[in-house]
Every structure is written in structure tokens, then in C-alpha cells.
Design a protein around this nucleic acid. Structure first.
Lengths: 253, 253
DNA sequence: CGGCCTGTTGAGCCGATTCAACAGCCGTGG
DNA sequence: CCACGGCTGTTGAATCGGCTCAACAGGCCG
């Protein structure tokens, strides 16, 4: 299923302490000693093409990892084969707090672009959690920041109209993506298809298309050919009732 | 809004190490030294009636707490005044990993029955997280177990039909409630109204009613007058595609 | 007794779905 | 080189699940 890598994802440095993500403002940073512990737990770097499965539902859970570059998404498949996208992952996202009762992955992760990941030994990270309060506290903080986003997704799917929900999702993704780079202006590259938006919000892909057309007609948000354009973010947030307060600075493992 | 307390919730013991929850099988337990640290962070016990607001959205976040007895639920209110129930809380549930960008509560919590809570100093717990890996690891574990439940709720709302979603929710609540007591037989007391089910699943309360009637007619699950009856859990799980693997033993703070 | 809250039922409507056809793009293979 | 199939996106038509509005029943409390 993994297509050939057309564009290479950036490679992380060999030493965690040189990680360029670590200095970005939306990440809470880790004490140098804790970074050294992490470095020790680090196993390898992995590079996968767009469409690749990073983790499958039910996989044995022998490693954890951090997304260094690229986009991915988490999803679950229901009994009848439908797909619910749970969240989108951006650089800095952590994969590993997701074991079910049998110790396996409770959801799957798939790459949207070529990605590079820093792989860590689950065993060593578990040990760090038990011995290094900085690391353990980070895990808690990661859980907390992801939870806030999940809460918002629940509101999106449960309570909002399809138009508002799509607008919220696109605004959220813009905020989260731009949190770790200088303001890129009106338009960003957002490597999703309409089917991803549909599956994230519980809509049919046909209806997701109609909603996107409607948003474009309303003039505040347009998304096509993987280009998300929001010329006036304040106006769009106002119009669709969006507020980004729930996005908190995340610990970067 | 808080009605008078008609039935008293049970009171926790003065010493955390004597906590009767701590010995129940679905809780991961804490080392005695860590329990001693918790004891030190403990401020008081609070007792509230059914309908009381434990925490309001936007409240300053100066304490954290554990639900010792009773039922409660977490919710968010959307811009247009609708309510999304995020999760239900049972004894052992933790309140406190929910700060928004301003450090305030990002959701509200309301009691369904009389409740008693063990209140802890946020400051002291934060310190414990930074110094005691056992406590910090517990926080991470709490986040992880709650996240698994949220994932399932997303699937419920996003992908499943109303009938399946209600069935899943009721089965989940039965599993979670019965995880910490001896098997109570076919019928349990579930202190929800139909409006709670509706708001948890993004349904109108009229439709929630019709779905409950339909479930009763199908003969496997019935819920009325706060009595949930599932005579044959295996058959109901099979019929509605439910599996409880995502419910993992939770750390009890 | 009357008010209020929860639950129940009917009627009509609307948002979203399904099914279907088609257009454009891209990569593959003849 | 063009022909083809596959994938994503677009649009129309018909259908349906769930919503809104509305009326009413029962229980509980003042």
C-alpha cells in the first residue's frame, strides 16, 4: 500500500539534544539529563513513504516513537469496516500510549506524507518512566494535551453542524501545524484528501465534498488540491465559533 | 442547581493507605512510599449532592481530586449552548489533567449522584510529579486509560448507528461500573437520564428515547427508571459488536 | 392542587446518506 | 506515444435516519 517516496522527509540529527524541534516555542523542553536518558533509549530512525502503516491495530507494542517530520493520522476500524480518524499527528507527536488490555496497539497510524520517526525502546522508556520523574511527567503532559484535542473532536462530531465541524477541523490543523514554524501566510500545504476529513468527522465523503464547496463559497476557508487557504483567520474563527485555547504547549519527548 | 442530598455517598477513610478502592482488582496499585506522598498532598474530603457542579469550565485549576464514591460526568458546552458529554466518571476517576492554555479547566464536571471526593493540592501533586516517578507514571497511566475510552467514544459518535452507539455506551458503563465490584447480576442502577445518553452521543433526547425503546423491543438491553438490565451480556455484545478490550486497569491515585 | 421535570409518541422536515455517473489526474504498460 | 485503469473529486437524484416542534402522561415536590 505504501507508495514510493516521492519527496524525502527531513532526517533528525543523531543526538537528541541537537533536535531542531526541541527549540520550537510550542514544545515544553526537557532537562539535559533527561534528554541524555532518552538518547540512551533511542534505537533508530525510521523513514517511511506516504500511505505507509506506521502501526497497525493489534500490533505488539514493542517500541514507542516520536514523529520527527511529516504528517500522519491515527484511526480505528469499526466492526463493520468503517474508519474513524481519531487525530492527526504532526512533528513532535508521540506514538506509544495506546496499549489495550492485551498490551497491543489499540489503534492504527498511517503516514500522509513521507515521514521520519525516532524509534525508542519501549522497555527502556518504561524504565525511564519508573525512574526519571521528568520523563514520566512528560508522558503525563503528552496525555493531557492529546486529551484536550480529543475533547474538542468529540464536540465537533457530536454537536456541531457539518459546516462548523469541517471549519473547526481545518482551523485546528492550521493552528497545530503553524505552532512550530514561522507564519507561512494565508495558505499552507495540508496533505489530506476529502476522505480523511470525512472519516475524521463521521461524514460521507460525498457530503464532505459538498461542505468544502460551501465553505469555499462562503469565502473564509478554502481547501482543495491539498492547499488550505484562510486569508483572515480571525474572521473565520469568529464566523465558525472556533477558539484555539484548548491547544496547549506539548512536551516533546 | 444542586438538589439536596437524599442518599449519602460513602466516606473515604482518613488514611489513603486504608482506601478500600486501592485493593480492587481493576486498579493498578501504588507503592506504599508513594501513597505516603499522596497522603501528604491530601487536603480534604468533599461531599456534594446529585446535580452539583464539581468543576466548571474555566475554573481556576488550584486543586485536583479523585472520585471516591458516586457517579459524575465530564462535559463541554459549545458556543451555541449545546452540551457534549465527554465521559462518565466512576469511583477512582481522577479530575485534574485538564488545563487549557490559560491554566483553567477545559471542561466541566457534574455529579449524577451524591459524591464524595478526595481533594489534593495541585501544587503538591505537581511537585510529586516532578520528584516521584511512581506518581508521575501514574498520571501517564491515567491519561492513557482515559484516552482509550475517548477513542471508543469517537468511534461511537462518528461511525456507529444510533442503536449501536447507545448499546455500546450502556455496555461500556456496565463494564466500567462492575469492574470494581462483585458481579451484581443482570441489573444495575445507572443514575442517568435519557438526556445524558443523548448528549453523550450527539443525539436529540427524543431520538435517544426511541432508540432505547427499540433496544428494549430487541430484548437484549433495557434501560428505564435508571435501571440497566442486560440479562445476557455475551449475546448483547455479539449483537451490537461490542468488545471491552479497550478498558484497561487504571492506576488509582 | 399546580408546576416542573423526565419520558413518550406523532407529524413533518431537513441534513446527510447512498447510489450512480462522470471528469481530471497520474502512473503503468502495450 | 497513446490507451487504460485506478484514484480523487464533483454533481445529481432519491432515500432515510435523526431532528424539530408539539402535545401529553406520570412522578415528585412545594
Amino acid at each position: 500500500m505504501a507508495r514510493a517516496t516521492t519527496r524525502l522527509a527531513a532526517l533528525p540529527p543523531n543526538r537528541c539534544r541537537d533536535c531542531p524541534l526541541r527549540v520550537l516555542p510550542n514544545f515544553v523542553d526537557l532537562a539535559p539529563e533527561a534528554v541524555a536518558g532518552l538518547q540512551d533509549a533511542r534505537v533508530s530512525v525510521r523513514h517511511l513513504g506516504a500511505g505507509a502503516t506506521l502501526y497497525a491495530e493489534g500490533d505488539a507494542s514493542s517500541e514507542v516513537s516520536t514523529l520527527f517530520d511529516g504528517w500522519a493520522f491515527r484511526y480505528k476500524t469499526t466492526e463493520d469496516g468503517r474508519r474513524q480518524i481519531l487525530d492527526f499527528a504532526v512533528p513532535g507527536s508521540f506514538f506509544g500510549l495506546a496499549e489495550d488490555a492485551d498490551g497491543n496497539w489499540n489503534h492504527a497510524v498511517e503516514a500522509l506524507t513521507p515521514v521520519s520517526m525516532c524509534i525508542l525502546s519501549r522497555e527502556k522508556v518504561s524504565l525511564l518512566i519508573r525512574t526519571d520523574p521528568a520523563i514520566a511527567g512528560f508522558m503525563a503532559g503528552i496525555g493531557r494535551s492529546e486529551q484536550a484535542i480529543l475533547y474538542e473532536h468529540l464536540c465537533n462530531i457530536g454537536q456541531r453542524s457539518a459546516v462548523d465541524a469541517v471549519a473547526h477541523l481545518l482551523l485546528e490543523l492550521r493552528f497545530r501545524w503553524c505552532a512550530h514554524r514561522p507564519d507561512p501566510g494565508d495558505t499552507i500545504h495540508l496533505p489530506l484528501g476529502q476522505a480523511h476529513i470525512a472519516d475524521a468527522l463521521g461524514l460521507s465523503h460525498v457530503h464532505a465534498n459538498r461542505v468544502l464547496m460551501q465553505l469555499k463559497r462562503q469565502g473564509l476557508i478554502s481547501f482543495s488540491h491539498q492547499r488550505l487557504s484562510i486569508p483572515d483567520i480571525a474572521a473565520a474563527s469568529e464566523r465558525y465559533g472556533y477558539g484555539p485555547q484548548y491547544i496547549v504547549p506539548r512536551p516533546l519527548l
